[in-house]
Amino acid sequence: MFDGLTNFLLHWATLAGALWLASHLFRNVRFDSHGALIAAALLLGFANTFVRPLVILLTLPFTLITFGLFLLVVNGLMILLVARLVRGFQVTGLWTAMLVSIFISLFSFAVSYFLADHGAAFQLPIGPAGPGGPGTWI
């Protein structure tokens, strides 16, 4: 019952941690309070879920022409949108926002890699290899 909620909270905490770390690594990213950080992480998650797909669809020709590199601009624009909406969250410039979006992507990838169950993807067959038996590779 709480699997979806646990997943949401885990993604939200990862995003908040990435934003907090980005504010310490990039001098043009700043949070005035912890509340602004939490609100920015929550709003960025919603913007990436609902607004970003629409923007990607509308800018599909640019994305195809640039072989997908325009998605960096879209990600940066999502961060600038959230910075505009959340009081106490400042990001100076599109280049900074694009670098922060790359950092957030790499940070989220690293966290999900370390939290994933790596043994579930491939299991050695044990037992008889009959159809439907424990030795099948399906």
Score class of each variant (00 low, 15 high):
residue 30 R to D: 09
residue 121 A to S: 15
residue 2 F to P: 02
residue 114 F to S: 10
residue 91 V to I: 12
residue 30 R to E: 12
residue 67 F to M: 07
residue 54 L to K: 07
residue 33 S to I: 03
residue 105 S to Q: 10
residue 97 A to R: 00
residue 102 I to S: 09
residue 134 P to H: 14
residue 105 S to M: 08
residue 33 S to H: 00
residue 55 V to E: 04
residue 61 P to G: 07
residue 45 G to Q: 06
residue 7 N to S: 15
residue 52 R to K: 12
residue 65 I to D: 04
residue 77 L to Y: 05
residue 110 A to C: 09
residue 23 S to G: 11
residue 61 P to I: 08
residue 7 N to Y: 12
residue 36 A to V: 07
residue 12 W to H: 10
residue 63 T to H: 06
residue 20 W to E: 01
residue 121 A to Q: 15
residue 122 F to C: 12
residue 17 G to C: 02
residue 91 V to F: 13
residue 42 L to H: 04
residue 121 A to V: 15
residue 124 L to N: 10
residue 107 F to A: 09
residue 32 D to A: 13
residue 45 G to W: 05
residue 51 V to I: 13
residue 136 T to C: 11
residue 35 G to Q: 04
residue 101 S to Y: 00
residue 99 L to I: 04
residue 43 L to C: 02
residue 128 P to R: 12
residue 70 F to Q: 01
residue 41 A to Y: 01
residue 47 A to N: 08
residue 91 V to N: 08
residue 101 S to D: 10
residue 116 A to H: 13
residue 137 W to Y: 14
residue 10 L to Q: 12
residue 89 F to P: 03
residue 127 G to N: 01
residue 119 G to V: 09
residue 17 G to W: 06
residue 102 I to H: 08
residue 123 Q to A: 15
residue 51 V to D: 00
residue 115 L to K: 11
residue 81 L to T: 03
residue 70 F to A: 01
residue 131 P to A: 08
residue 78 M to Y: 03
residue 57 L to V: 05
residue 48 N to C: 04
residue 137 W to A: 15
residue 107 F to C: 02
residue 75 N to I: 01
residue 54 L to M: 08
residue 82 V to S: 03
residue 138 I to M: 10
residue 115 L to H: 10
residue 123 Q to T: 15
residue 44 L to P: 06
residue 10 L to N: 13
residue 117 D to N: 14
residue 68 G to A: 09
residue 44 L to E: 02
residue 88 G to L: 02
residue 20 W to C: 01
residue 64 L to G: 04
residue 37 L to N: 07
residue 94 L to I: 15
residue 24 H to I: 09
residue 118 H to K: 15
residue 114 F to W: 15
residue 5 L to P: 03
residue 137 W to K: 14
residue 18 A to I: 04
residue 107 F to E: 01
residue 50 F to H: 06
residue 35 G to I: 00
residue 22 A to D: 00
residue 131 P to T: 06
residue 82 V to Y: 04
residue 24 H to N: 11
residue 124 L to Y: 13
residue 51 V to E: 06
residue 93 G to N: 08
residue 99 L to C: 10
residue 11 H to P: 02
residue 126 I to N: 00
residue 123 Q to E: 15
residue 100 V to L: 05
residue 72 L to C: 07
residue 134 P to R: 14
residue 132 G to P: 06
residue 67 F to G: 00
residue 65 I to W: 02
residue 84 R to Y: 13
residue 137 W to D: 15
residue 120 A to F: 13
residue 9 L to Y: 08
residue 95 W to M: 08
residue 55 V to T: 02
residue 22 A to G: 12
residue 86 V to Y: 03
residue 78 M to F: 05
residue 130 G to L: 14
residue 39 A to W: 04
residue 113 Y to V: 12
residue 54 L to W: 11
residue 82 V to C: 06
residue 64 L to F: 12
residue 104 I to V: 13
residue 17 G to Q: 00
residue 110 A to V: 12
residue 88 G to V: 03
residue 120 A to T: 12
residue 45 G to H: 02
residue 111 V to W: 07
residue 31 F to K: 01
residue 111 V to A: 09
residue 59 T to K: 00
residue 89 F to G: 04
residue 105 S to L: 11
residue 73 V to M: 07
residue 121 A to E: 14
residue 48 N to R: 14
residue 105 S to D: 06
residue 86 V to L: 09
residue 37 L to K: 01
residue 119 G to S: 14
residue 35 G to Y: 04
residue 5 L to F: 08
residue 17 G to N: 01
residue 116 A to C: 11
residue 37 L to R: 07
residue 109 F to P: 00
residue 101 S to F: 05
residue 80 L to N: 11
